[in-house]
Design a protein around this nucleic acid. Structure first.
Lengths: 153, 153
DNA sequence: CGCATTTATATCGCGCGCGATAAATATTTA
DNA sequence: TAAATATTTATCGCGCGCGATATAAATGCG
């Protein structure tokens, strides 16, 4: 029995944490997306934002932020950059002047076609590394459970 | 069978992605750590860096970056901030002048004591949300597999 | 030895991510 | 209706995270 430490700090070791693997995996996945997104000229958070809009073409800033579990002050400048790239348009709500409606432009809508092959490429890359689709599905479901539990914090 | 879309873009839906849950979970976990780390006056990446040094008191910038799967240009300024807080010290390597040795100070070493209760509090909070320790362990192991596969990209 | 190459760290610029705060509009309530 | 409150978005500052680049020290090689 090793007693190098007066107290037992094993629970503070990086390898025993859940937080670090999630954090590291997130960055590694974003890195894997990078070359594909570079080809489209967008960043990973911008890609996620477009995915939201590809499902529903017009949404408020708040609704997008809620879907992505982000604060509005994070996506406000992001949406302005997407607007500068002519991928979305911004307009004040008619019924409620406080709301800002974000809509896909034709260009933003067209980008879905270019992006549609990306997930397949990523999954194929992971399969080459020995990660089966069923394993990824399992992981996804467990993460959804974790998010469900944590989003209510 | 719904055919609202000419092509099938289901694989581009947020809920069908693995990338988004990992990304969201990472941020939610960091948010959960926030109040505990605020009490110590450090950020989440700084906390991870200290965890590495709590396991091995002196390491080079490169070794720390490698452990955290980060680039050195990310942690160089981070380490300078830790130095400004008197939590670590920086000194050039004797054998190799290019290397910068990062060492824990007494203050940095002492902070482990204050931090040691954090993981327990977090796990307890998750248990209250219905997430069992065995589920978290399972998730951690799966993430390690994913990281193993992706780190070689 | 002299010079090219590699390695280790640092610098710079940009886009998040978020706490704190502000400003404008809408809603509630006295 | 007038004032207080709430909602929605925007602004600001700071710390990452990383690609591109720079600088200095070490290594390799003719």
């Amino acid at each position: 029995m090793k007693t190098l430490d007066p107290a037992n700090y094993d629970h503070l070791k990086l390898e025993n944490q859940l937080c670090f693997p999630v954090y590291a995996a997130s960055r590694l996945i974003i890195r894997a997306y990078q070359p594909h997104l570079d080809a489209l000229g967008i960043t990973y958070p911008q890609y996620l934002t477009l995915m939201v809009l590809w499902e529903e073409e017009t949404m408020t800033v708040n609704e997008i932020a809620h879907k992505l579990l982000l604060n509005t002050n994070t996506i406000t400048p992001l949406l302005k950059r997407l607007e500068a790239m002519k991928l979305v348009s911004r307009s004040r709500g008619i019924d409620d002047e406080r709301k800002v409606m974000i809509s896909l432009t034709d260009k933003g809508r067209a980008m879905r076609e270019d992006a549609s092959s990306i997930p397949f490429k990523l999954v194929a890359g992971l399969e080459d590394k020995g990660l089966t689709p069923s394993m990824l599905l399992n992981l996804k479901q467990q993460l959804h459970q974790l998010i469900e539990g944590m989003a209510s914090f």
